[in-house]
């Protein structure tokens, strides 16, 4: 019984952790959206900033991956 409650808590926690991925999605969307609006204003400068955009995506995405990892840990390793 106690184990079931612990497991229930773990699963609820896993679900809650997944909301963090929404934040990462918003972050990635902001990065790419701003990149595109900047690129449309000044297309000649866009090529030089593509790498920067990918670095920005990587940084914001990493945090979503962390929450995903927490969810996985709760699901499988608790």
């Amino acid at each position: 019984m106690e184990g079931d409650i612990v497991q229930m808590g773990a699963y609820i926690g896993a679900g809650l952790a997944c909301t963090g991925m929404g934040g990462a999605a918003i972050g990635v969307g902001t990065v790419v959206g701003n990149y595109i609006s900047g690129a449309l204003r000044n297309p000649s400068a866009s090529a030089s900033q593509t790498a920067t955009m990918f670095i920005g995506i990587a940084f914001s995405e990493a945090l979503g991956i962390f929450s995903f990892l927490v969810a996985l840990l709760l699901m499988y390793a608790s």
């Binding site: 106690e2 184990g3 612990v6 497991q7 773990a10 996985l72 699901m75 499988y76 390793a77 608790s78």
Partner: peptide, 20 residues
């Protein structure tokens, strides 16, 4: 296995293949 792992808390490592 998960339940087992959860039962003796603190033993985070899943020894078995079906953990992580």
């Amino acid at each position: 296995d998960a339940a087992h792992g959860a039962a003796d808390a603190g033993h985070a490592v899943a020894e078995h293949a079906d953990g992580m």
